[in-house]
């Protein structure tokens, strides 16, 4: 159990348990996806770029996709650097 980033329990957890948990989480994802880790991501990225391009002029390398899998939630983070039309849209739009 960790609170504010540090452990309340100073006793070191058994690492075998950590190993077991990591594997269970990973394998649940890999099996659940059928063919392993999400293979749709490259296609998803291309589709996203295509959709965004209908409205905004962005380059391929201005779209960044990150993933973080956790015990109960996984998040897909998509960062799009919008072109700075007259300096105003300089900040990356962040969606979850």
């Amino acid at each position: 159990m960790s609170l504010f980033g540090f452990s309340l329990n100073r006793r070191r957890p058994k690492t075998a348990q950590t190993a077991r948990d990591r594997l269970q989480l990973l394998l649940a994802h890999e099996r659940g996806q059928g063919s392993g880790t999400p293979d749709y991501l490259p296609q998803l990225q291309n589709d996203l770029i295509a959709v965004i391009r209908k409205y905004i002029d962005v380059a391929d390398d201005e779209v960044d996709i990150r993933m973080e899998r956790d015990d109960d939630v996984s998040s897909l983070e998509i960062n799009i650097d919008l072109p700075s039309a007259e300096e105003k849209a300089d900040k990356p739009a962040k969606k979850r």
Binding site: R22, L25, L26, T37, P38, L41, P42, Q45, D60, D61, I65, R66, M67, E68, R69, D70
Partner: peptide
């Protein structure tokens, strides 16, 4: 292992950029 999105093969096949 929880942070893998794209991989070496995606890059080789042009599905993702190296970065």
């Amino acid at each position: 292992e929880r942070r893998v999105v794209f991989d070496f093969i995606n890059v080789i096949q042009g599905d993702a950029r190296l970065k």
